[in-house]
Design a protein around this nucleic acid. Structure first.
Length: 323
DNA sequence: CGCGTTTGACCAGCGC
DNA sequence: GCGCTGGTCAAACGCG
């Protein structure tokens, strides 16, 4: 854990939150976050995208960020979520200028593995929760388990825990707590967070056999920033009824109404080079990838599988780029 | 009635 | 072993 925090501290954010604040105090800031033990090659992603960001003259690039007044960074860490996010956020906000410190700036974590398998989605245990899975395993072992098999079970548990920790997070500057992303979510819990006056909400994808979860919490340091963490990957397309769902959601409402919300502001201030569908997929919309960038990215990802995984993870980001 | 939210209880992991 | 914390469960409840 400690080394991950260190990694984050070494990470240099390129685009300044304050900068966008000065552009538009209601702009959305997205900060994508790939967690450590993930099988996504987050390390590579962060370095590649990071270098692109660094070379972007406007300091607002990333995944097509010339399109929007927001910033997105992919970075990589095993999770000490609270610390990580706040460290990241602190760093971002503490840097008033756009200067890039250090080369590359991407964090390095040796644990990150390149894999074509989408990790947790491979587990079709229903995965009601990690503990139920572990319980089941323990029960299966029974009392006759010898020490060796116990070791195997422990190792297995660790591996599965690692896989479950495949996560992507965003920091979004918005007044809306639960940002619409096209999928349907069911809230299954809410917890008070240590050192934060704001509770953390737990959501699960309502689609059957899809065990994607997401956590939503508000930064205690800047209540206007919402941290959304996605865990695992959807094994289904965006529900076709999403448009309806999104119109009923806060983002859609604000879009239809008077542009007071950050979402609508984002929409209004963003050059209309993408479709309504993209807009409705906020916050992903702010990560919209233009065709050139995608092409560039697919070349830069050393392993095609990682790029594909990223696509799977954020279909809405890539959807409109598909031929 | 179906679906989603709320909320107190419970459990596991972790640090001391 | 104990306490703290994060994550989940599930009954109760609300809403359309």
């Amino acid at each position: 854990m400690s080394n991950e925090t260190k990694d984050l501290n070494n990470y240099h954010f390129t685009s300044s939150y304050d900068h966008y604040n000065s552009i538009n105090s209601q702009s959305i800031m997205n900060l994508a976050y790939l967690s450590g033990p993930s099988t996504y090659n987050a390390n590579m992603i962060s370095s590649q995208i990071g270098s692109d960001l660094h070379s972007c003259p406007r300091g607002a690039c990333g995944l097509g960020f010339e399109l929007s007044p927001s910033s997105t960074e992919f970075f990589n860490s095993s999770i000490d979520q609270e610390n990580d996010f706040y460290n990241a956020y602190n760093y971002n906000t503490s840097h008033k200028s756009h200067e890039v410190v250090g080369g590359g700036g991407a964090i390095v974590e040796s644990e990150t593995k390149v894999s074509a398998s989408p990790s947790s989605s491979e587990h079709h245990h229903g995965e009601d929760s990690g503990k139920s899975l572990m319980k089941r395993e323990a029960d299966d072992g029974g009392k006759d388990i010898d020490q060796r098999s116990q070791k195997v079970v422990k190792t297995k548990k660790k591996e599965e825990k690692k896989q479950r920790e495949s996560r992507v997070s965003f920091m979004t500057k918005t007044d809306v707590d639960h940002l619409e992303d096209g999928y349907r979510w069911r809230k299954y819990g809410q917890k008070a967070v240590k050192n934060s006056p704001y509770p953390r909400s737990y959501y699960r994808c309502t689609t059957q056999k899809c065990n994607v979860k997401k956590r939503v919490e508000r930064s205690y340091q800047d209540p206007t920033v919402v941290i959304t963490t996605y865990e695992s990957q959807h094994n289904h397309p965006i529900p076709t009824s999403r448009r309806t769902a999104m119109f009923s959601g806060p983002a859609a409402c604000s879009y239809n109404s008077s542009s007071l919300s950050p979402v609508s502001d984002f929409i209004i201030n963003t050059p209309r080079t993408f479709s309504h569908d993209d807009l409705f997929r906020a916050p992903y919309a702010s990560m919209n990838v233009n065709a050139n960038y995608e092409q560039q990215q697919s070349q830069e990802f050393h392993h095609e599988s990682d790029y594909e995984l990223l696509k799977e993870m954020f279909p809405s980001v890539f959807l409109k780029q598909e031929p």
